[in-house]
C-alpha cells in the first residue's frame, strides 16, 4: 500500500485529494508520517524516525501508524502497489 501520487499536502496540514475533491486536516505527527509515506519509506523506517524525535514507545507508534494508515485507506488516500 502506498500513498496515492496525486494527493496534495500543504505544510499547514491541509490534505487534498484531487480525484475525489475531498479535503482533510492532519496534525503534526500525521503530517510527518504522510510525508515519509510519500517518499516511500517503509513503516519500519517511519516508526524509527518518530521514536527518535518523540516521547513514545515503539509499539504505541507502530499501532498508531497502522491505525492512521487504516483511516487513510478508509478515506481512499492509499492505493495498491501496482495501481
Amino acid at each position: 500500500m502506498n500513498l496515492k501520487n496525486n494527493i496534495a499536502i500543504s505544510d499547514s496540514g491541509f490534505v487534498f485529494n484531487p480525484s475525489s475533491g475531498e479535503s482533510f486536516s492532519v496534525n503534526q505527527i500525521g503530517l510527518e508520517m504522510l510525508n515519509m509515506l510519500r517518499q516511500k519509506f517503509t513503516t519500519e523506517d517511519i516508526v524509527t524516525h518518530i521514536e527518535k524525535g518523540f516521547q513514545a514507545e515503539r509499539p504505541t507508534i507502530e499501532r498508531d501508524l497502522n491505525d492512521f494508515i487504516d483511516m487513510m485507506n478508509q478515506y481512499h488516500l492509499m492505493q495498491d502497489e501496482d495501481e
Partner: peptide, 10 residues
C-alpha cells in the same frame, strides 16, 4: 511530546 497521528475529513 508525542501525539497520535490523526486525519480528519473536512
Amino acid at each position: 511530546r508525542y501525539e497520535r497521528p490523526v486525519i480528519k475529513k473536512l
